[in-house]
């Protein structure tokens, strides 16, 4: 099961992030340029991901019905995980003419993404723009990972079943926010803050969020220091936070 959870996170939380990478990172947007490549990732047991690159941007979609012009087939969830680690190659079954994009551009983008998701802490200490982008992309990766854990991991399912229906806001200052919608033990992550949240987790700054997401700070201390504030249905946050705590187990 571990490989399945990890693969669904790799697809729907990590690779999904290409969408935001192309928005936040000029070098990535430029690399995409005016090409049009729509890559479908087909992994057994897991919802498909389609990444559509065009006009210096990327759009991520989930499901079987989305259009694509290149299909990458993986023999197993583990196969996908090994590709993400750079150990194995995918098997293209459609769109051979885009192999060049895959080899060059996609690999470049993956490297850019990694530079934000596994941040250089020295650089982050002096470059606030880098820290902000890294925090946003890491937050997306972690918070899109949570619904996958809630869906596929046994403990994750148990925790999610205890989260009452409603919306959980996660915000950084006034600048950045996303929310999770809990419904009957399933979770969905959505961009932007919600005006109807039942509970909220509010980081004061990107520095705090960066420290917490990278395991340099702990939430209990941050709450006491007023760097992280909690409001609303605490039981929802409590179980959500436990799910969030499971992310590093899968995202190494």
């Amino acid at each position: 099961m571990y490989e399945t959870v990890k693969a669904s996170i790799n697809l729907h939380a990590v690779l999904r992030n290409m969408e935001d990478l192309c928005q936040l990172d000029d070098a990535s947007a430029e690399a995409v340029g005016d090409r049009y490549v729509s890559i479908r990732f087909s992994v057994p047991e897991i919802d498909r991901l389609v990444l559509t690159f065009r006009n210096q941007s990327c759009q991520a979609g989930r499901g079987d019905e989305l259009p694509y012009n290149m299909n990458l087939r993986f023999s197993s969830p583990e196969h996908l995980n090994l590709m993400v680690e750079g150990v194995k190659n995918p098997i293209p079954t459609k769109g051979f003419r885009h192999i060049g994009f895959l080899k060059d551009t996609f690999t470049f983008l993956a490297g850019r993404l990694e530079s934000y998701l596994k941040p250089d802490h020295e650089k982050a200490a002096t470059d606030s723009e880098y820290l902000k982008r890294s925090t946003i992309l890491t937050a997306y990766a972690a918070l899109y990972a949570v619904p996958e854990i809630a869906r596929y991991d046994e403990t994750g399912r148990k925790l999610a079943s205890k989260i009452e229906d409603g919306i959980i806001n996660v915000t950084v200052g006034d600048d950045f926010g996303l929310h999770l919608i809990a419904e009957k033990g399933r979770l969905r992550t959505m961009k932007g803050r919600s005006a109807n949240a039942r509970t909220a987790m509010m980081f004061d700054t990107f520095e705090t969020a960066f420290g917490l997401l990278n395991g340099k700070l702990d939430s209990y201390t941050c709450i006491g220091l007023g760097l992280l504030a909690i409001r609303g249905r605490v039981s929802m946050i409590d179980n959500f936070n436990k799910l969030l705590g499971m992310v590093p187990h899968y995202l190494s």
Binding site: Y220, I223, G224, G226, A229, I230, R231, V234
Partner: peptide, 11 residues
């Protein structure tokens, strides 16, 4: 403590 004790807002 302020976290488990649900000091909301902590201030």
């Amino acid at each position: 403590g302020p976290a488990s004790g649900c000091f909301i807002p902590v201030s």
